[in-house]
Amino acid sequence: MRQEQQNGRKLKFHILRFNPQIEGDKPKMVTYELTEALGMTVFIALNQIREQHDPSLQFDFVCRAGICGSCAMVINGKPDLACRTLTSKFPKGEITLLPLPAFELIGDLSVNTGKVMRAVSERIEGWIHDKNMGEIDLTKMEVTMDPDLADNIYELERCVECGCCLAACGTKRMRDDFLGAVGFMKVARFLMDTRDKRTEEDMYEIIGDDDGIFGCMSLMGCEDFCPKDLPHQHQIAYLRRKMVTVK
């Protein structure tokens, strides 16, 4: 461990402050200083800033453990989860925090990811589709699923909807109607699920255009900045190959 870290080095946080609710408020960068503690994350630091410097600082969090996806923000230029980013990662001790782009700003570092994620789910109809669903006999045993398939579905379902993939996507930034990696991951997930009776043709209706899979320019921001390391590159390529062959 480095000596200065043991002693607690000084960290400088440059944070974008702007509250759109306050009339006349203008975006500005404000610097806060605090002493680094062992194992400190950006999330812990933000709490300290709010306690010690400014109680009006807005940022989102729920779980503190990289599960809820609420605390995504731009940390030194990279979209990431605040709770999973150790301050020791930045040797200079200077940390710039910006709210995630591509989302509506609530205030300071807080953005409305929920609104976008809901729209994505509605757009791709992110639920099991089965025309015979009404005839399911609840007294009968459910058909078992192959464990490998269940594992594969679970792998794609690890998405926490933090929004880093959309904020890191140059295509999404330029073209707001673009679905983005979070949507493609959901489509891939439901395409894999045998309980969902939608065909590839049905999925083409959802993502078969330039706002969907054919709009992706393979910039790979989603792949490189997903905090959950989801296989975006592989799944997007898979969907593209599937969709291009739909008759």
Binding site: G77, M217, S218, G221, F225
Partner: peptide, 17 residues
């Protein structure tokens, strides 16, 4: 928007596009 995105992210695959 794209230029500022590039400047912020410094992400190779985005830049080479």
């Amino acid at each position: 928007v794209f230029r500022s995105h590039m400047k912020m992210m410094k992400h190779k695959d985005t830049n080479i596009w």
